[in-house]
Nucleic acid binder design. Sequence first.
RNA 1: GGUCGCAUAGCUCAGUUGGUAGAGCACCGCGUUCACAUCGCGGUUGUCACAGGUUCGAGUCCUGUUGCGACCACCA
Length: 768
Amino acid sequence: MTEANLEKVCNPAEYEGRVYESTQSRFQPDSTANEMFSILMPPPNVTGNLHVGHALTYTIQDILIRYHRQRGCNTLWQPGVDHAGIATQLVVTKELESQGVDVQTLTRAEFIKKVWEWKNKSGSMIVEQLKELGCSIPWELSRFTMDNEFCKAVTKVFVALYKEGLIFRDKRLVNWDTKLETAVSDLEVQNREEPGTLWHIRYKLVDSDEYITVATTRPETIFGDSAIAVNPTDIRYKHLVGKSVIVPHTDRKITIVADEYVDIEKGTGCLKVTPAHDFNDFAIGKRHHLECISVIDKRGHMDGACIPDYLQGVYLKKARKLVLDKLKGDGLLVREEQIVHTVPYCDRSGSVIEPLLTDQWFVDAKALAVEAIKVVENGEIKFYPSKWVNTYFEWMRNIEPWCISRQIVWGHQIPAWYGPNGEVFVEESEETAIEQAAKCGISKDQLTRDPDVLDTWFSSGLWPFAALGWPDDTAFLKTYYPTTVLVTGFDIIFFWVARMIMMSVHFMKRVPFKDVYVHALVRDGAGQKMSKSKGNVIAPHDLMEEFGADALRLTLALLSVPGRDVKLSRDNVKINRNFLTKVWNAARFLQTKNIPAKCEIPDAATKGKVNNWIIAKFQKFQGEIDQNIQEYRFDYAARNIQSFLRNAYCDFFIEAVKLLDDDWTKAVALRVYAEYLRVAHPIIPLVTDHIAQSLGICDSLILGRPNEAIMKITTSDDDEAEVDEFVELLHRVRSAKQTDGAECSEYPELRKQLQSWQGELHQIAGIV
RNA sequence: GGUCGCAUAGCUCAGUUGGUAGAGCACCGCGUUCACAUCGCGGUUGUCACAGGUUCGAGUCCUGUUGCGACCACCA
């Protein structure tokens, strides 16, 4: 025993921070080790604030990392932070505006400078919170997706893909956010069901008094109509195909076309075709060579040659009302029908998405998906739980071109320069672009750089290799790529996992990781999704402050049952905090026994059945933990941690130690407990390290190797079985004792049986 | 419409190749002589959603039904 002592009460607030500080020098990889284990940390957003989802994902990763580090692996947990383009730009803009800065007056360079200032000042909050959680992250190795080196990698990938024809520029209909004034990808669009109105509008036929009625939810876009479509088999309208109608409030004539897409049952069976503002209409327009007439501008105002004067520059919502009023006045609005329909929203800004026709950059995802599908099909990448491969395949096999350009300034600016006549130069640096332009007789002054930046997920997709130093052939890349396992939530399988696989197999010709462990979403105790509006958000920090980081970690591990939501409640964390107190008190018991911390169990093996028994139980426990961690069953592992200590060590063994009280047994008690601390350490690192330090066992369990001596002891199966039997009888005796007083008491008889046991078991029969 | 899940004690959930249904919480009883009341000991609790099928035997495998959820697509 050392001078150090365990306080009477387990108070995480007292020791957690100190323990973390004292051990963080041991988080680095050990390049002398033979076996390698690496995890790419999903880089949190620079704007990030630790929420329970983070707590779950990083706890799981820390368990894996700590476990493998203890086993002597060369372990890398590659940290990083993501620049989070749109999210960060929004945060910084808001902050500047609150300071009275007119963001519109800032130049691009000035704004970017402000973002960096903000980043340096408040962009590391999440780093501190991850420390609080006890994550053994070597932060010195951290990468930022906007660092120079990382930017180089992004540019190189863009240029390479462009030159291979896998990135192209095109004028297409894209999802446009009129508030942020940028394009977003399909994945960033969230469809929400809402009540709405279906307006039935009459269009007059040319050279006839007949009308045709269409149904629409977007009356303000009638000025962008370039046809009316009906189903070719619809007998109601067959005679009208090929005829023309007049767009209300204009003198523009459009034709009635027949197209299979039109559903006879829906609306009136007549569809107004507005190719510039609807994805399906765009496709119809292509088939019938229709004109694309834009009537909405990038800010969501009416704009264009085809709209009447009274609507010019009017905001969409207001325009709709004006159009409806006028249609009603002219008797062209024949019916209003209340319906429920889905409306696309931007998941970032919450504003309605408008399909707009704009020039954008796209990745030919279909081409990149071919290999990415193969590596999952042939098992080079495995998903845990495996059901997620279905989700992956479904998306990958139906993948659409990925719109990667964003009309914001915070991010990787697209390395494309344009000449005066539409010439395009995509190069890795401005110098090369100028050189190439010069060859075409274009001077430097005539070149303009594309102002757009790349989708944040484009750079995230390169994380597996760019974070390790690509395009340089670094030692890290050689040693740690491909990484062992990726840990992430199912919500970003498309956003991130799929793209990392696509990019990695293309550029590295090898998979980025061998396993993908997909965990569930964290919900509140009632199974509700946590959201600010519901007010049911649980902040990890609050839980850690009240119960300690270990209690939160243990709870999350226990709840991470594959395929089921993680339902986290305060009560749950509290209960598991109580278990940690149990661990603590077992240590306090040992402390009262004054056992030398360095004592060893002599190899002469096991004197005594009870010692034999606890060692056998420990060996089994160690085996179960190994298996469960290997199979990513953190819930089982956490349960093993609880049941071994409670059921085997405390409930029976400690009670036996009290009665036996010989040096031999006490040595076993200490050594098994020390080993238990080591095994439990990956899940509950702070309390175990604190106890290990206080009992004088070691400075830290971070590099604690499994104790071969204990694992090698050959225990007697007979002894184990006999003690098991004894324990079982013990329970029956206690049970009978409780129900004693009833006439049919077995207690005296059972008690006698227990005491008739020979040797040391006889000695501890008083345990009742 | 397509895909994938889920349904077991009052609650939250385990139940790995089919072999007598488990844990924690809650509840009830007993218990503070010094590891632990943030505790210990003991106890109560089930038509395993429903209906069929395979089997000597089904919570577990198969088919169908119902209810709930997630994701994708679409919606004039």
